[in-house]
Amino acid sequence: MQTRQWRSFVALGDSFTEGIDDPADRGYRGWADRVAEALAAQADGFRYANIAIRGKRLEEMVVEQIPVAARMRPELVAFVGGGNDVLRTKVMWQELHAKLAHGVRTLVETGATVLLCTGTTYAQALPFGKIVARRAAAMNEIIKAVAAEYAQVLIDPWDGHEQGNARYFSIDRLHLSPAGHRRVAAHALAALGLPHDPELLVPLPAADRVGWLRARRADVGWARHHLAPWVGRRLAGRSSGDLITAKRPELVPLVIEPETQPAN
């Protein structure tokens, strides 16, 4: 069977799709950029836009990003959200389901194929980790249901124990490391029926265990540098994306830049 050549791709969402903590020469790379690079290698004249912005909630994606993506009329759209919603004090599940479905329906009506992705439920290292994990699992069920309802492409990269492997997460314990972004990209390419490195689908060996004292020191440092600023933004009603603009706001030909960062 001949592999489909996608000629245009728009990625929307939050920090996950913006590519936070997958550093590049200029800003961040991330799983969506990695997928775009693979797509560009398959089709001449390939065009790509990434309008994801860190901190965005699902409602903001539907209101601000979905209309932009719909006007671009790409062949493929990545629509991944909900992670910031489950971190809020109160979660309105029916509203989240309705917003996600509305966004997917709007994109499908333009003729696009929509790529959705479940989130990790690994939250033991976060405050109220068990609550966050349960919420993340509930959000994943919504994502799966909407993908099935509209017969769109679903990625489920964290269906095994590998989601608890610290190697897939950055130092802030929330965003993905370069290894995590590579894994998601490989799952996306596999779901689209495109060439990918099968080794990236094999779980990495578990991270080395550290002693109790070293772990507590790491907890203190994490709380100071990552938790405290996050709490401060919540109390002030601010978002990490308030002053951020989309890194690739236009649907234009993609120039592939070499990967210069060491593998993690």
Rank of each mutant, 00 (worst) to 15 (best):
L251Q: 00
L204P: 03
C117Q: 13
A186H: 07
D33V: 14
K130Q: 14
L126A: 03
A32H: 06
R105E: 15
V231H: 01
V184G: 00
L254K: 06
I155H: 04
L201V: 07
G19H: 02
A179F: 06
A11Y: 03
H187L: 05
N84K: 00
V146K: 03
A145V: 09
G119H: 12
R214A: 14
H97P: 02
L58V: 09
I155E: 10
R182L: 11
D197S: 01
L204E: 08
L200M: 09
T106G: 01
R26Y: 11
P249A: 06
L154G: 06
A41T: 13
Q42P: 00
L58I: 11
P253L: 05
V202C: 05
T89V: 13
H181C: 04
R26K: 14
F46M: 15
G237S: 08
A148K: 13
Q2Y: 03
R7P: 02
A218D: 14
V104S: 04
A185C: 07
R73I: 05
R54P: 02
V146W: 01
D25K: 12
R135I: 04
E109H: 09
G103R: 11
L126S: 02
L194Y: 00
A24S: 15
V77G: 04
A98P: 02
L194H: 10
L100Y: 12
R26Q: 14
A52E: 03
V104F: 00
V91A: 06
L213R: 15
R135E: 03
A179M: 09
A24C: 11
G129R: 10
G221N: 12
L176R: 11
S15T: 10
G232L: 07
Q261R: 13
I20H: 11
P229Y: 00
H102A: 15
A148F: 03
A36V: 08
A206I: 09
L189A: 02
F128L: 14
V86M: 03
L192M: 07
V10A: 08
D22L: 05
A166F: 04
A218E: 14
S239L: 10
D22H: 01
R29N: 09
N264Y: 13
T120R: 04
N84H: 01
R105V: 11
W230I: 09
R238Q: 12
A179Y: 07
D156N: 09
V114H: 02
Q5M: 10
D25Y: 04
Y48K: 07
W31F: 15
G164K: 12
T260R: 15
R73E: 12
T89L: 14
D197T: 02
K247G: 05
L189G: 01
D22V: 07
W31D: 01
L12M: 15
A49P: 08
R57L: 14
C117R: 03
I244T: 14
R34T: 13
E60L: 11
P74D: 10
G81S: 02
P23H: 07
T89W: 12
F46S: 08
E95W: 04
A24I: 09
P258K: 08
I66V: 15
Q163W: 03
L39E: 11
M92L: 14
L115F: 04
D159L: 10
G241P: 08
L227Q: 01
H102L: 15
Q152R: 08
T121I: 08
S8P: 05
P195C: 06
D219E: 13
R234S: 06
G13W: 10
V68Q: 14
F16P: 00
